[in-house]
Amino acid sequence: MSSFLTRNRLILLAYLGMVVLLLVTALFSPGFLSESNLRSTLVLAAFVGIVALGQTFVIIGGGIDLSIPWVLNSAAILMTLLCAGQDLPLFWVAPLILVGGAAIGLINGVGVAIFGVPPIIMTLAANVILQGLILVYTGGSPTPSAPELIKFLSVGRLGPVPVILLIWAVLALVASLLLSKAAFGRHLYALGSSATVAEFSGVPTARTIILTYASSGLSAALAGMLLTGYSGQAYLGMGDSYLFTSIAAVAIGGASILGGSGHYLGSIAGALVLTILTGLLPALNLSSGALLVVYGAVILVTVSLGSETFASLWGLVFKNKKQKTEGD
């Protein structure tokens, strides 16, 4: 475990940052640390965290998924339309939508891995196409409200524990096992470090790339359905803010945006940091414009703390401490 932490110092830093941010927030708005508020913060973080799951895989593999907003949005709208407020259809609609999300990701992955389309172009195009299709399909008219069952999954509780946190915990466990204990993880880190070396070493590069995008489509579709349960209905544009937050959560969590490093445990910390931040900012009594400026700036600073330059500064700090203890 200690070797895991030394190799993943940035993840530790992300959690440290989260704690500091939590304390600062409590200073500005004392009610923030109340049980109910912490719980609702965790629930909000879960949506970011679930979206960031697939994005973590994609970024570690050296790609990026910009199709998340409208995969999420399409999943939300299709679910409400197909279920029409009833619970029963959900048993075939939910699997269908998850498969559909994964299929969009599969197409992204095939475009990137087989046809060599740059990830930014491929996924951005998928995003725009989905947006257009949904607008055509719905004609912009409002959709029915979410089924009760999905509301239970998003805002319901089992005892004191929100159901969505259980879902998130299971997903986090699966993702961590895949990254740390499965062949898939080894392939993924190798791919992100150098696609050519991975190819020359017999890593199934195309398959790995396609899997990452498929998992990203899957997690975005799941998040879309759960988010609909949270807000009670689906609406156009509900996924837009999740593009930036999914990437920021991964980056704050210590992954290199160029691929080859990072872990979902870090992205969890990233999702928490981002959510606490959105809780802190209103307490500062700033205008909504100023809020966005601060939000963006804080993310910028947090991510750059993990950059090469800062890493060497950290190295100096740690090294001096070590020498001191050796001298004692």
Binding site: A182, S194, V197, A198
Partner: peptide, 28 residues
């Protein structure tokens, strides 16, 4: 460029091509 992941460990490089030799039911 083709042979070695410079930012990964000696261990990860050595076993990169033979992951299936130490995988049991999907786990390393």
């Amino acid at each position: 460029g083709q042979g070695l992941l410079l930012t990964k460990s000696v261990r990860e490089n050595l076993t990169l091509s033979v992951i299936r030799r130490f995988t049991d039911k999907g786990f390393l």
